[in-house]
């Protein structure tokens, strides 16, 4: 575990090493406020699950590749997770993080009627990264991501949820905040600047 001492020298604060994001209804507009705001030298990987209909071609990668300053790609099975890269889960596959920080895809059953599922990504990433993970639940109409965000917080990671008051679809961030009292509620722009500042010592 990489840790850096806090300014006051008291307890060590883990450095965040990866970001996971989950979004459903209204995802594209919400992600458009966040992902393009990440700087070209962003030092973290960003793994993203968006609920997309299984039979639909996944247009997220070309869309965000054109608007982001960091690399954007569809996750491949068993690929090593690299810094400064956004990975989208392919439609109709779960995306998991292995303990050796490679990506696994799976066709296991739907979770919360969804594949990919946010919980599946967040649970496995919390196992792999422990406290060095930041999890973000954005707009959506179901409760996928709530248990996952709690797993992120329980492992000592940073938990964020989009402010339900301003979310396009408030149910999903609200469920996440209910399940995970440690999670902070933020506007999309606050989330964007919070994530952009991550990678060095964790902002407090």
């Amino acid at each position: 575990m990489i840790a850096s001492a806090q300014a006051n020298g008291a307890s060590p604060t883990p450095v965040t090493e990866a970001v996971v994001i989950g979004a459903s209804a209204g995802a594209v507009q919400a992600l458009a406020r966040i992902l393009p705001a990440l700087p070209a030298d962003y030092p973290l990987p960003v793994l993203v699950v968006v609920h997309v209909p299984a039979d639909r071609d996944n247009m997220l990668v070309p869309h965000f590749a054109a608007t982001c300053r960091i690399a954007v790609r569809e996750a491949e099975d068993k690929e090593a997770i690299r810094a400064g890269t956004v990975y989208f889960a392919p439609s109709d596959y779960h995306m998991l993080v292995e303990p050796d920080r490679t990506i696994s895809l799976s066709l296991d059953p739907l979770v919360h009627y969804s594949r990919p599922s946010i919980d599946v990504l967040f649970d496995s990433a919390a196992d792999a990264y422990g406290p060095a993970l930041a999890g973000v639940v954005l707009t959506g109409a179901n409760d996928d991501g709530a248990a996952g965000l709690k797993a992120v917080a329980d492992a000592g990671g940073v938990a964020l949820a989009e402010d339900p008051a301003t979310a396009y679809s408030p149910a999903m961030p609200r469920a996440a905040l209910d399940a995970c009292p440690a999670a902070r509620s933020m506007s999309l722009d606050q989330i964007a600047s919070f994530l952009a500042a991550l990678g060095g010592a964790r902002p407090s």
């Binding site: 068993k78 779960h94 292995e98 303990p99 799976s106 296991d108």
Partner: peptide
Amino acid sequence: YARASIKRR
């Protein structure tokens, strides 16, 4: 087996 999946199962 890929450990993250097997753990869920």
